[in-house]
């Protein structure tokens, strides 16, 4: 396959960036999208040019490190698939592909296609946990958890924290990410004692990080590689309201 790539290049966070065009004459349909970028980088380096910086690690769709907005869609056109699992057979010979970083104020560009998702870590640190120290845990079977609840918790916990939800949202809102963690723990008995606190604290940190507001577009859900449902957002809204109306100051 012959492809034309329009790739975002940006030296650093405070420097203006621009799209750069590159031709790839010989792309195998069996390559993954990132392997295609590897080929480009090999080509660039052999010409003495700086390779395109992009984030990636496990390349099997679970670490959440890879990103990229491909032709306007985070993680590209294939549903429920991360960029690293997207294969070039999804595209056609002669295609022009536009590759941009996830764009949000809360995700500043570090270089080229790499972004800083530290805001997600800070949201987690503000409440995405059960406050339990190591040791002293009761027997794992001491509290039964119904299969439906365990499954629902797992549906939410499947989030890989990639940030595609933010990238896809016209408002750069992080509600799907936050609600996935809130929803995961809200479905388990272990999460109950801090349920309200957690929702309040995580939402407030999310706001402080400069994400936009949810307007119920559900673009987040459509691009989520793990197909996390927007119903977790509704659930978090409920928890948040309840915590404010019925909880402490």
């Amino acid at each position: 396959m012959k492809l034309t790539l329009r790739i975002w290049r940006q030296k650093g966070p405070d420097v203006a960036g621009d799209l750069e065009t590159h031709e790839l004459p010989d792309v195998s349909p069996d390559m993954s999208f990132l392997e295609m970028l590897d080929v480009l980088n090999e080509q660039l380096q052999n010409e003495g040019k700086e390779p395109v910086a992009f984030d990636h690690d496990c390349r099997e769709g679970i670490c959440g490190m890879c990103s990229l907005v491909i032709d306007g869609v985070p993680h590209g056109p294939m549903k429920a698939t991360t960029t690293c699992q997207l294969h070039m057979r999804t595209f056609h010979d002669g295609d022009t592909i536009t590759i941009e970083p996830f764009r949000a104020k809360a995700f500043p560009v570090i270089k080229d296609l790499c972004i800083d998702r530290g805001a997600f870590d800070r949201i987690s640190a503000s409440g995405g946990f059960v406050s339990v120290n190591t040791g002293g845990a009761p027997d794992a079977n001491a509290v039964p958890i119904g299969k439906e609840d365990a499954d629902a918790a797992m549906d939410a916990a499947a989030c890989i924290g990639c940030g595609a939800c933010v990238a896809a949202c016209p408002n750069a809102s992080a509600m799907l990410y936050v609600s996935a963690k809130v929803g995961h723990l809200a479905h388990l008995p272990q999460g109950q004692p801090e349920r309200g606190r957690r929702a309040r604290s995580m939402v407030e940190t999310m706001d402080a990080e400069g994400f936009g507001n949810c307007r119920n577009y559900y673009e987040c859900e459509a691009v989520c590689p793990k197909e996390i449902s927007h119903h977790f957002i509704g659930g978090m809204n409920r928890d948040f309201l309840k915590a404010n109306l019925c909880g402490g100051e």
Binding site: E100, G210, N213, Y218
Partner: peptide, 21 residues
């Protein structure tokens, strides 16, 4: 809220896309 939303994405996508909204 709309103003905040605009501020939350200072740089627009060169090639915007849409999936299900």
């Amino acid at each position: 809220l709309a103003a905040e939303n605009k501020a939350a994405r200072p740089a627009a996508y060169a090639r915007p896309g849409r999936v299900q909204s």
